[in-house]
Every structure is written in structure tokens, then in C-alpha cells.
Design a protein around this nucleic acid. Structure first.
Lengths: 361, 361
DNA sequence: TTGTATGCGTTATCAT
DNA sequence: ATGATAACGCATACAA
């Protein structure tokens, strides 16, 4: 089935010629005013007498006038568009944040340009470059670890930008996020409080992911405060797929004595661990405690329900939008030093299983 | 913490003046050629001698030249941007499709403008209008049910558009999707084949959602072919949250004799049903068969694993991009009459429980 | 193959 | 409060 647009003429070369669009000049003529006045009315950029305003609005509506964005951007030197460059949309933490970001932009009559780079540094760089070329008024990035020259490019362009899921205290550039050190303390304190001393991590891939590294450092630090250690063999790295998380659990089991509690990089990984443990006949939390990060909707409904740390996904997106909006208007915007999290204790954490003392000792 | 861009001067009114950007004219001067030649080199739009090409490319690179998108769009009358207007990103079927859509666009050096409207018709209209104003070269919509005048606006604008998750055979406008009637047949045939005769639906909200209506009609038709009926009381409507799906199951139970099998509108709803059934001590699939749509990642890992229908999420997004790219270039593009689905039989469907014959009859 | 000149549709500056 | 006019930065038709 060959489909053709029903409107617009088709030229010899097959190109679709859009219907002649009505321009500001024609609206002006119809309303008996100058183009400048039409512009003023439509943008509410200066006072216009009620009479003229009404005539202009009526004419614009009748003629179905739609402003030409590129021309407007060229003349006003603002695109009213903000870019968002994220690793992926598959992870709902990003899609939630993005949705909040866009909604906030929309309220201020801005549009969102979105691109994903699938954790590929080179692609991230090209994408940002494209966004700058598109003339975005601001740019939202993820994390504080970027390919070489990316920040240089950004600063040279003069485009306001903000890093999300990055620690404001550790980055010299504008950042919004929570402190992974604080998150680690919350989790470790909870587990140690339950009696765990052997704690392991199922982390994300660290390659190009500073959040993972910060998390590991945080857990290590938090454990040290309890005189505990987090040796490398207690850290397994995984992608964020259930399948991979299950393999990660098996991998850790093969490495030697199992920890009594595992911190998963996020809820999806945690679910994978729970699923694999169940498949092996292990009891969660009886034999193994598991804790996630993110508090996805499903977390509360699993059996057992997942203990996790709730992070402010939508708040991050909304704040990023507010920040960029402010900056692109030349206003200052105070970014909080960090956002808060909340431990949600449910059914996958409990005291560790009893250990028989070694009779020989 | 007040953050300021480190580049760019700050004017008295607080507005950030971006660094003077290098324009094509200056690159031309540096390379000792005309602006036209620079344009030709950078856009590969015409043949340029090797010598000049090298000089231009070197100059552009050194000076960090980045083209001005708005000016380019104004002059070339193409924005190299495509719009995507979807109900929400929370539902992963859309975020998956969107990701594929954007990746395909990126390969053709196009950018994606994305906006969600949260199933709000009025907002959908305004959003599309904004997209047109932004000068998108094409627009991806969801479904075939739109607010009044939306299609008119679209046709008047001459912007190519395509409806996803819409039946190409039932819409007079370009559409990509699978046939909900076919989907219904697949599901009903499976359940009836197992011996079910009392089948219920936990559908989405029909308000502004033609997919749901088509699905219901499809199931009703498929059941009729087996001499079965789908009375209104066997249809419960729900939002796509686990919590709501659980309530939907209870609602159906209150309505009278329970069906022996339920078709959920999607996998998230199906998971909610499974969770609620388990919480009530019901055995799935022993007491109740449940089938979803979508085949989310989690579906295969639940216990019991979810029987579902796999739909071509990413293919829809990719094909939408290909279609719009072709149309905006004046090329034809054959849209297939429908995309195929696949029944994935797992552990939540089984023959219905034995029924004792009513001794009185 | 390369350069010149014009136009893209709007906003902003400057008069009035 | 309103109108005339000059940018805005690039692509492209035309000329050479």
C-alpha cells in the first residue's frame, strides 16, 4: 500500500510541496496592521491596544496561522527547545525523569529534544554536538563522567547544561542528584543493624558509569565505619537485565562463601537476584537478604516485596528543567547540595541465618 | 549554591551572553574560500575539489564551527527534526518504540522532538500544534483516535505523519500496527483450546483509547466464532498500575461467577492480576488462567512465568521513522497491512478447573 | 568546480 | 502604541 499525503502538491521529482503556509505578513495585511504588531500580539511582548489585538487574534485564528519556528529562533536567538541526552529509556528511572522534565518544559512553552546513546561515549559526544547545532537553550546530561572534550564543547558553546544523577558536591559543574555515599550508609546501616557482617554488591558495569563507582566507594566507606570490609570478590558486575542479574548471583556463589546480604544496583537487578534465589530453592530473606535501589512500582508487589531505597526520579527531571529554564533566562538558580532518599523496608531483608560455630575453634 | 555558567559574559540584566560563535563566513575566510563552498563541503551537497575540501574541513574543525540549526532550517526549508507525540513514557511499550524511533532517525542525521500528553486530548492537540510550529519534517502519533481538527491541522500543515498502534486497514491515514482482531483470535483460540468457555477481560480505559475498543471487539468476535459470549459484566476497566489491576480482579469477583480465564490489557495488568490472585490464595493457572500482552522482560521471570502475546514494539518505532524519513524526502513507502505477533505460552495458562455438575439439573 | 547574490520568516531596533 | 526596516546565519539558484 503506497501512502501519499493527501495535502500538498507532488512535484515532478516526487518531493512533497507543503501547502503554501500563511506568513505573518499576510496576517498583518488581513488585520490591517504591520507585521511587527502581529508579532507583538502573538508573543505578548509589548502592549497593543485592545482593538488591534482583537483584530490580529481573529485574523490569525481564521487563517490558521502557525509561526515558523526556525525563523523565530533565528531572529530571537532562542530556540525555546531544551535537549535531554540520556543513556537509555529502557531503564524506567530515566523515562520517569524525562517525562517530568518534558512536562515542566511544556508548562513554559519549551520543547524537548531527546536522544539516547546506549552508554556509548562516542555517541554521547556526537549527540550533544547535534543538540548544540540544533540550538537548544539548555541541555540535560546524565552523570558526571563524559567523553573527553564534551564539557569543553559545552562551555565553548555557552549553552547552559546540568548533570543529573551526579553529586553536586563532587562535580565542579552544575549537578543534580543524591549522594551515593549517603545512599550507601542508609543501606549498610540497615543491613548491619539486622546483624549482617558479610555484605556483597551486585553492581552495574562501571565502564563510563560514575554512579556505579561512587556507589561502590560509598558502600566500602560505610562498611569501614562498622569495621567491615568489602573485598573485590564480593562485588559482581552486571547489566541491567533480569537474565544477567541471575547469572551474577551464580557468579558470586562460585567465588566462594556467600555473603548473607546483597545490595543490587537497582530494583531490576534485585528482582533478578530474588528470582534466581527462588529458582535455586534459597529462601529470601531467610537465607539471603536482598536490597534494591529505585522503588519501581513492581517492587511493592513482588513476593516477598522488595526492600529498596526510593530515589527522587521525577524530582530530578523537574529540577533539571527548572534549572535550565532559569539559566537560559539569565536568572540564577540554587541547586540543592543533594536530594534526599528514603529507605523502604519490606520483605527481602531480615537478620542473617544462624551460623554454627566451628567446633574446632 | 548559586551556579553560573563559566563561559559567556553576564550582562547587567543578568542575561548570559553566549560566546561569539563562529559563523560560516569566518570559516570561509580562514579557508580562503566562499561561504557557499564551506556549506557545500559540510553538507556534501555538491562536489568540491579535494584541496578546498581539506582546507575547509581543517578550518572548521580548528575553529570549532557548529552550524546554526535555525538558520539552516530557515534557508533549506527542512528542520531535520521529527516529532513523536505519545501518551506516556511510563508504559515501556512506548519508551521502547520511541528509543527505536530515535535511533533510526539518528542514523539519518535527524533529531527527535518528544512530548507526552498523558491521554489528554486537549493537550495532544496543543502538542501537535507546537510540533508543527517547530517545523518538524514528520510526526509520529499513537492510535487512530484523535481530538477534533487534529487531522485537519495536520493535513493543512502538509507535515507527513503516521499513526502507530493503529490498524492500517481501518484507518484512512497512514498507520502502523498490528490487528487487534488477530491478536484477539490468537488469545481466544489458545484459551478455548485449553477448554475455557468463560473468558473475561481486564481492559484499559476506553476513553480516548481506540486500541482498547478494538481489542474488545476483537475478543467478542473471536469468541462468537466459538459460540461463546463476552457479556459486559465480564469486562472490567483499569488503569495500568499494579494496584489498579489488583482492584480490577476484586471488582470482577464481586460481579458474580468468575470466568476461568482472563485476558489482561497488557503485561503490567496481567502481573497485577497474578499478584492479587496469589494474595487471595488462588492458584494460577490452576484456578484461573491469565494472559497478558507485550512480553515485557519480567514476564518470563515471574512465578509462574506469564503467558503473553509478544508485540513488535521496536519494529513499530523503527518503521515509523523509516516511513517519515521517506515521505519527507518525497519518496513513497509501502506500509505493511499489519505487523505480526507471537503467542508465548508459559505458565499462567492451563485447562480450567474441573466443575462439578450441578446435581439439581 | 567555485563565487555572488538573494531569500528564508521572524524579531528587535529605531523612529514616530 | 504602532510602523518601517535591518538583522538573524545559512542554503541555493544562478553566473562564471
Amino acid at each position: 500500500m503506497a501512502v501519499r499525503s493527501k495535502s500538498g502538491a507532488v512535484a515532478a521529482d516526487g518531493a512533497v510541496a507543503p501547502r503554501p503556509k500563511v506568513r505573518i505578513e499576510e496576517v498583518a495585511r488581513a488585520a490591517g496592521v504591520s507585521a511587527a504588531t502581529v508579532s507583538r500580539v502573538l508573543n505578548r511582548t509589548a502592549l497593543v491596544s485592545d482593538d488591534l489585538r482583537d483584530r490580529v487574534e481573529a485574523a490569525a485564528r481564521e487563517m490558521g496561522y502557525v509561526a515558523h519556528g526556525a525563523a523565530r529562533a533565528l531572529a530571537s536567538r532562542r530556540s525555546r527547545a531544551m535537549g535531554a541526552v540520556v543513556p537509555t529509556l529502557t531503564n524506567t528511572i530515566f523515562s520517569d525523569a524525562i517525562e517530568a522534565f518534558q512536562q515542566r518544559l511544556d508548562a513554559e512553552h519549551h520543547t524537548m529534544l531527546l536522544a539516547t546513546y546506549d552508554y556509548d561515549e562516542e555517541l554521547e559526544y556526537r549527540t550533544v554536538r547535534t543538540m548544540i547545532e540544533r540550538g537548544v537553550d539548555g541541555l540535560m546530561l546524565v552523570g558526571s563522567m563524559h567523553p573527553p572534550h564534551l564539557l569543553e564543547l559545552l562551555e565553548a558553546s555557552g549553552v547552559p547544561f546540568v548533570q543529573t544523577w551526579a553529586s553536586p558536591r563532587r562535580s565542579e559543574h552544575p549537578a543534580i542528584g543524591y549522594d551515593n555515599g549517603a545512599l550507601a550508609r542508609i543501606v549498610v546501616d540497615h543491613l548491619v543493624g539486622l546483624g549482617h557482617r558479610e555484605i556483597g554488591m551486585v553492581a552495574g558495569l562501571t565502564r563510563h558509569n560514575d554512579r556505579v563507582q561512587a556507589r561502590i566507594a560509598g558502600v566500602r566507606g560505610a562498611m569501614r565505619r562498622h569495621k567491615l570490609r568489602l573485598p573485590p570478590e564480593r562485588i559482581v558486575y552486571t547489566r541491567y537485565r533480569i537474565e544477567d542479574a541471575r547469572a551474577a548471583l551464580r557468579e558470586m556463589q562460585q567465588r566462594g562463601p556467600m555473603p548473607t546480604a546483597l545490595l543490587a544496583n537497582n530494583d531490576v537487578v534485585a528482582m533478578g537476584l530474588v528470582v534466581e534465589a527462588a529458582a535455586q530453592g534459597l529462601c529470601v530473606p531467610g537465607d539471603l537478604s536482598i536490597i534494591g535501589v529505585g522503588d519501581l512500582e513492581m517492587a511493592a508487589h513482588m513476593r516477598p516485596p522488595l526492600t529498596t531505597v526510593r530515589t527522587p526520579k521525577r524530582a530530578i527531571g523537574a529540577m533539571a528543567a527548572d534549572y535550565l529554564l532559569a539559566r537560559s533566562n539569565g536568572r540564577d538558580f540554587d541547586l540543592p547540595p543533594e536530594l534526599s532518599m528514603e529507605l523502604v523496608v519490606r520483605g527481602t531483608t531480615a537478620p542473617p541465618p544462624m551460623r554454627h560455630k566451628d567446633p574446632d575453634s
